[in-house]
Computed example of a mutant assay.
Amino acid sequence: MIEVNAQGFDSSAQSKIHVQGGVAMSPNEAPTKWPSPFSATDFAKFGKEQADTLAEMQKELSRLAEQANADWMSRMELERDLASELGGKLSQAKNPADAAKAYQDWMGRRVEIMSKDSQKFFADTQKFVTAMTRFLTGGRSFNS
Rank of each mutant, 00 (worst) to 15 (best):
M1W: 06
M1T: 09
E3C: 03
E3I: 05
E3D: 08
E3R: 11
V4R: 14
N5Q: 04
Q7T: 12
Q7D: 04
G8R: 09
F9G: 11
F9Y: 14
F9E: 15
S12I: 01
A13I: 12
Q14S: 08
Q14I: 05
Q14L: 07
S15R: 14
S15W: 14
K16T: 11
K16V: 11
K16L: 08
I17M: 08
V19G: 05
Q20A: 06
A24I: 10
M25A: 12
S26M: 09
S26L: 11
S26A: 05
P27V: 05
N28W: 08
N28Q: 08
E29D: 10
E29V: 00
E29G: 01
E29K: 03
P31H: 05
P31Q: 04
P31W: 05
T32V: 13
K33C: 06
K33G: 09
K33W: 14
S36Q: 15
P37E: 06
F38S: 03
S39C: 02
S39G: 07
A40P: 14
T41N: 12
T41S: 10
D42C: 02
A44R: 08
G47W: 04
G47A: 07
E49K: 07
E49T: 03
E49A: 05
E49W: 03
D52Q: 12
T53H: 05
T53S: 10
T53E: 07
L54S: 11
A55T: 02
A55F: 00
E56R: 11
Q58R: 12
K59T: 13
E60M: 01
L61G: 00
L61Q: 00
S62D: 15
S62W: 12
R63N: 13
R63I: 03
L64R: 14
E66L: 03
Q67L: 09
Q67F: 08
N69W: 13
A70W: 01
D71R: 13
W72Y: 14
M73T: 02
M73R: 09
R75E: 15
R75T: 10
M76P: 02
M76W: 14
L78W: 12
L78V: 08
R80Y: 13
R80P: 01
R80I: 04
R80N: 09
D81M: 00
D81T: 01
L82S: 03
L82G: 00
A83I: 01
A83V: 01
E85P: 07
L86W: 03
L86I: 02
L86S: 01
G87V: 01
L90D: 13
L90Y: 12
S91P: 02
Q92V: 00
Q92G: 06
Q92R: 13
A93Y: 10
A93W: 11
A93D: 05
N95A: 01
P96W: 02
A97R: 11
D98Q: 06
A99S: 10
A99P: 06
A99F: 06
A100R: 14
A100L: 12
K101Y: 00
A102I: 01
A102E: 03
Q104C: 01
W106S: 05
G108A: 07
R109I: 00
M114L: 11
M114P: 00
S115M: 09
S115W: 06
K116Y: 02
K116V: 02
Q119D: 13
Q119Y: 02
K120S: 14
F121L: 13
F122E: 15
F122Y: 15
A123H: 02
T125C: 04
T133W: 06
T133R: 13
F135Y: 15
L136W: 14
G138K: 05
R140D: 11
R140M: 09
S144F: 13
S144H: 13
